[in-house]
């Protein structure tokens, strides 16, 4: 992996200290808030969507897209860009506003989310949406696709990293573990899985539907370097992601278990697990927006 050099912004990341500055943290908090608000606005078009699946991952989106990943250079197809894949593709509505802010999706397209002929649906489509690195929707494929990208990058001596966001319910899919074995065997150190461990899936609590613990021990046993972090603590999350990305000595793929709260940011979603899929009527939406505006996560 000698070719994994990367250019870091001169201000933010002295090698000895990966912690983001107060200014960076403020920016990332604002972006996570932006993701939540835009999700509410866009789902209003479709009248149904995965609010709470985005809300648990909002800080992860913000940290990756506005700080950690080497991606925003105006060209969504740049061969050396970092890649991002979503095993939990149903949270794509939280990513589209970011891609629109980067200029990859035009405003009108974003505002017409899910309308007839629009490229933006509940799941991401790489053929239709610039900035989407891989399509998803069938749970369990993304880590294999990310592995292929990581191996392809290494074969061609490219320096990019591949970040794959996985749902915790997704751990129930067999192909995830095929990819896990394979990535460790091939020492895909440029592959980083982030598990959004929000604890819920469509039929209820993950541990009730089909238990997956001890998750960290499973990944460690499969040959991965494993970290656990509070997925809403932007300071800790960003520090860890920066560290993992900068680690040239690692020979294993890396798994980050992000402990999160389904529906984080909206109190009645945080306490009511039935919000995996739903619709906020205008008065509920107004309450949610108010809370998101006034809470600091």
């Amino acid at each position: 992996m000698s070719a994994r050099e990367r250019t870091l912004p001169p201000d933010a990341r002295p090698a000895s200290n990966f912690r983001p500055t107060a200014e960076t943290l403020a920016l990332l908090r604002e972006k996570a808030r932006f993701v939540r608000l835009e999700t509410i606005r866009l789902i209003e078009v479709a009248k149904v969507g995965h609010y709470s699946s985005v809300f648990s991952a909002a800080e992860i989106f913000a940290a990756l897209y506005y700080d950690v990943m080497d991606i925003n250079h105006g060209d969504p197809r740049r061969p050396d860009r970092d890649r991002f894949l979503m095993g939990k593709g149903h949270a794509a509505v939280g990513l589209f506003p970011i891609l629109a802010e980067f200029g990859y999706i035009d405003r009108e397209t974003l505002d017409n989310y899910t309308r007839l002929g629009n490229p933006l649906g509940d799941h991401p489509d790489m053929r239709k949406v610039p900035g989407i690195d891989f399509s998803s929707g069938s749970i369990g494929h993304a880590l294999s696709a990310g592995l292929g990208m990581a191996l392809g990058g290494r074969m061609q001596k490219r320096s990019f990293d591949v970040f794959v966001m996985l749902g915790d319910g997704e751990m129930q899919e067999g192909q995830v573990w095929e990819a896990a074995i394979s990535a460790a065997h091939h020492k895909a150190s440029n592959l980083i899985a982030i598990i959004d461990r929000n604890g819920f899936q469509l039929d209820g609590a993950v541990d009730d539907v089909m238990g997956i613990e001890p998750l960290d021990e499973k990944w460690r046993a499969f040959g991965w370097e494993v970290h656990t972090v509070d997925g809403h603590d932007l300071d800790a999350l960003t520090t860890l992601l920066r560290q993992v990305k900068a680690d040239e000595a690692r020979t294993k793929p890396c798994c980050i278990i992000a402990r999160t709260l389904k529906g984080k940011g909206v109190s009645y979603m945080e306490t009511e697990p039935g919000w995996h899929l739903g619709y906020l009527d205008p008065s509920d939406a107004a309450r949610a927006v108010e809370e998101i505006m006034n809470r600091t996560i």
Binding site: F134, S144, L147, G148, G152, Q156, R158, Q175, I181, S182
Partner: peptide, 25 residues
């Protein structure tokens, strides 16, 4: 260096091949 042994994981192999193709291979 241009060969990948996937072991007995055919589904992983097919999806990973798609990932490989996205990088220009």
């Amino acid at each position: 260096d241009r060969y990948i042994q996937f072991g007995i994981s055919e589904q992983n192999m097919v999806t990973a091949a798609a990932g490989l193709a996205t990088t220009g291979l």
